[in-house]
Simulated assay, not measured.
Amino acid sequence: MQTLHKITPCLWFDGQAEEAANFYVTLFPDSRITHIQHHGEAGPGEPGSVLVVTFELSGQPLIGLNGGPQFPFTEAVSLQIGCDSQQEVDDLWARLTADGGEEGQCGWLKDKYGLSWQVVPRRLFELMDESDPARAARATEKMLTMRKLDINVLEEAAKG
């Protein structure tokens, strides 16, 4: 039986919910599949039989629903990842853009399932929240020109 949380984002997939959830849980510590619900007549393990996958990414509950092709993902909804190092940014960027993912602007990307992610170093938020508005503006302006965010480049831009 799955636990009902107060708020749990539900991601609509076209048949790849279990595959996507299995991939996503490999990306983050404290992540796991918590429940798989199958269509009423299909049995576990049968291709296409999964209806819902409940999973956690770094403790955040999510649901993957195999709802069909009617509603593909758009950039209107994305998952933001706060990264502690450039290595973490680089690793997640490479893994999420692999096998058909697409780079976007300003640290955004789409994975191979079409889901949008923001891979953002926590240092960017610190730079944008500087008490010196000119430093913050320079960091922000530089961020707007980048695809994958680079902490060193952002810090150099902030310095002027």
Rank of each mutant, 00 (worst) to 15 (best):
Q80L: 11
K159C: 02
H39C: 02
K6R: 11
C83F: 06
S58N: 15
Q16N: 04
S131F: 13
T26Y: 06
K112I: 01
G101V: 08
L154M: 06
S49A: 11
T34K: 14
Q87H: 07
S85C: 04
W117P: 05
L62P: 10
V52Y: 11
P72T: 10
L127E: 01
A42G: 14
G43F: 07
F55W: 09
M146S: 01
G82Q: 11
L92E: 07
G104F: 08
S49P: 03
Q70N: 14
T3N: 04
A139W: 04
L109N: 00
A158T: 04
T34P: 06
P121E: 07
R147D: 06
G82E: 11
P69V: 06
L149R: 06
L149S: 03
M146I: 01
R147F: 05
I36Q: 09
G59A: 11
N152R: 13
W108K: 01
N152E: 15
A98N: 02
L115V: 05
A21E: 00
T26P: 03
G43Q: 15
F23S: 06
S78Y: 00
G160K: 12
I81S: 02
M128T: 07
V25W: 09
G59L: 09
A158N: 09
T140Q: 13
F28P: 02
P72N: 10
M146C: 05
S78I: 00
R32S: 14
T140S: 15
D14H: 08
V153M: 12
E18C: 04
S31F: 09
N152W: 06
G15Q: 04
L79W: 13
Q118F: 08
W93S: 03
A139Y: 04
R32M: 04
I7D: 06
G40V: 11
H35L: 00
Q87P: 09
A157I: 10
A42N: 13
G64L: 00
L109R: 01
T3Q: 08
Q80A: 10
G15S: 04
G101S: 04
I36V: 12
W93M: 08
L92W: 02
L109K: 02
G59H: 11
G67I: 03
P44N: 14
Y24L: 15
A98I: 08
A94C: 08
A157P: 09
E56S: 10
I151C: 00
M146A: 03
M143Y: 03
A20F: 03
D150E: 12
P47V: 13
A76Y: 09
R123P: 06
H5A: 13
C106Y: 00
D132A: 00
G67C: 03
E41W: 09
L149W: 06
A94N: 15
P9C: 00
D90M: 05
Q60T: 01
E18P: 08
H39A: 04
D129Q: 14
W108I: 01
E126R: 12
V119I: 15
